[in-house]
Design a binder for these strands. Structure first.
Lengths: 197, 197
DNA sequence: CTAGTTATAGACCGATCGGTCTATAGAGTA
DNA sequence: TACTCTATAGACCGATCGGTCTATAACTAG
């Protein structure tokens, strides 16, 4: 097993742990047991311990999410269709996990103390990148810059809030409802802007 | 100091702890130190320990939120103005805490394991009540039942997601942006329904 | 005053936390 | 084969976790 293999296994295991139990909800021993690796490996690859591993997991989660979104936007001509496809995949993913898995970024954001500035900075960077990505694509759908930026943030916040509520509800209903409302909004507003408002 | 005093202090302290550090982010000893009470008091009032205290904090948070919303909706003729006032107060609250405090419900929802069924059930109940409250009020603003329900969930998810992102960003920007987008949506759709669609 | 109940008060417990340390297996190179 | 460096391997540590226990202060009822 090469260096990169173990490192990656640890990152992915931490990512899953964040999704299902939050930052302080899992212990390192449990993570290592799941990963099938000893403590020595963890502190060899991540001398900074749990926090460094969490930062790596956050970075990886953001990268996965960004790549997935970019692929979707590349596949669909209409950015709004890509958004719908994104939500669709999120619905399937969370239902397949029996509503156990949320967003690792959100979990880390709510489970750390305000003093964990490194974590919060990393999270802010991750959310900022996703927001910018969405803003760019929503602009492509014919929205002016400011409206697109606001809308991108609304998409992101309702996605995160929807995932959180779906986990609590044990149902995809919150995500479905909020995105139905959101899309009907976007379509309406799109017409308005198309009419020159 | 009466029985109810100590009990209430513990509940409020746990509520604050959930907001700033999440369920597993604070220890009981820290909570007791903040509350200025010994361990005996905790287990006298809450024999079920940390989980029972967390459940009480969740119930209290929901009640506070519900009451606050009901008061706002009673004060404003236009439900949408009440929503705007709600967000305004949330902005002030989170900024006043220097972006340390999130929503205790969301924090608990993301920081518990999927096996904590009691917690998840309580959270689902709390979110359900808030959703129903919002649905009722949004209906009053002239929205058909289904659209109002969808919209209520969108309001709630983007509120929760917005609080979370604001905490990570150290800025009210995410909440402001998402609610600006949301309100412009609601106004537009309101016109549509008023025109008989 | 006594008995009984309520509500602290905090010492104490085993388990587990994140983290450190020494030891060594194994691959690559001379 | 012997040396070296990488990457485990896991025993071990003090601190802290949530939780239990006994003791007692404070108040009420008789």
């Amino acid at each position: 097993m090469s260096k990169e293999d173990s490192r990656y296994i640890l990152v992915k295991t931490m990512q899953s742990a964040l999704q299902s139990k939050g930052l302080h909800g899992v212990g390192l021993n449990e993570i290592l047991k799941t990963a099938g690796l000893p403590k020595g490996s963890l502190y060899y690859h991540f001398p900074g311990g749990k926090e460094e591993l969490a930062l790596a997991a956050i970075a990886n989660a953001e990268q996965e999410m960004s790549r997935f979104l970019e692929q979707l936007f590349a596949r669909f001509d209409d950015p709004l269709e890509a958004l719908a496809a994104w939500i669709d995949s999120a619905l399937q993913r969370i239902a397949a996990s029996r509503f156990k898995l949320g967003c690792p970024l959100a979990a880390a954001a709510l489970d750390c103390s305000p003093e964990d500035t490194d974590l919060l900075l990393a999270l802010n960077g991750a959310f900022g990148n996703l927001r910018d990505l969405l803003t760019r694509q929503i602009s492509r759908a014919g929205f002016p810059a400011e409206a697109a930026a606001d809308l991108a943030v609304l998409v992101l916040t309702s996605y995160e809030g929807g995932l959180m509520m779906a986990r609590a509800a044990g149902s995809t209903d919150p995500i479905e409802r909020s995105f139905r409302a959101l899309l009907s909004h976007v379509r309406l507003q799109q017409k308005e802007f198309a009419n020159g408002h």
